[in-house]
Design a protein around this nucleic acid. Structure first.
Lengths: 158, 158
DNA sequence: CTATAAATGTTATGTTATAACATATCAATA
DNA sequence: TATTGATATGTTATAACATAACATTTATAG
């Protein structure tokens, strides 16, 4: 697990994700317009999931967008191309931390610090589960809510 | 996979689930009030997920409830006690087909026939995934969207 | 330059969910 | 059996999330 729960060089997170996405867009002929790029940057500001209206507020602060469809379109663009993920349990969004990999992520939602981590090893697992019943998987959602190591360590120090 | 996608004796599905839930409530001192029981029956009418407002409409037809909180309370009761599941991807609910088992279900959503199936073998799997990063799982959501065997068989006969 | 596709701007509304508080019912026990 | 505390229901109001539909603008290929 690329551990977003633990202290880390977040500027590097942000920068490398942005660079990777920019390259991917160039390669794939996708347009990372100002609204889309700023939306990604907003999600990259932290590892907390943001709701569409949270993102909209920030876009509005920047004068880039001020109506719900604008935020949803940018978020949907990012999600469709794997640059962000929708967290179903939270009706919210996070930037992808593996934007280079074609993946079905598992999302780990800490109920204490509210950060959301992502791992990529879950895809083949779902495929395997589905095969049993002859189910052909189109998209797979795996989300866990619980507590991260860091928060458990801290609370045991009380 | 208890195959809800294939033709089956649905009256038996309904009856056995209801009986199991009634017994569980008796054993555990839970009150299966008219609204709650009717809500479960409504969900048991088919294997399609129903939104809270769909359920509310039916409760209203029966004169049992006519305000959103009433439907949400009944649904939340059923979900809390494992008698129904919320389908996050659909913002909707299904009756549990294994109400006797303490389980984390995986849900299989067919995009063609729109039925939703449930399997129980997924719990330890999530625990295993989470252990890797020291994450302690409280609740786990596993949902697949795709196509069931039956729908694929039918469409290949065209 | 122009045609076409893609993206953005805008209005309006649909859908899902809960906070907050009042009232009623149940179930244990004084 | 009256009291009481807990649980459930009734009600109002609104919060939170999301999209349909259509107009306008911008990018890009021919």
């Amino acid at each position: 697990m690329q551990n977003v729960f633990a202290p880390h060089d977040h500027a590097n997170c942000t920068h490398s994700a942005l660079t990777t996405v920019e390259r991917a867009c160039a390669e794939r002929g996708l347009r990372l317009t100002p609204i889309r790029k700023r939306t990604l940057e907003i999600l990259l500001e932290g590892h907390h999931a943001l709701g569409a209206y949270d993102v909209l507020q920030k876009l509005s602060d920047d004068g880039l967008a001020d109506k719900p469809p604008m935020a949803y379109r940018a978020l949907n663009f990012l999600v469709e191309h794997g640059f962000a993920h929708r967290v179903e349990r939270l009706n919210a969004y996070i930037a992808c931390t593996h934007p280079d990999a074609d993946h079905t992520p598992a999302l780990w939602i800490c109920l204490d610090c509210h950060k959301v981590a992502e791992t990529v090893q879950a895809a083949e697992l779902g495929q395997r589960l589905g095969q049993e019943g002859g189910f052909s998987i189109n998209t797979l959602t795996i989300e866990a809510e619980g507590s991260c190591q860091q928060c458990r360590d801290e609370s045991s120090n009380d």
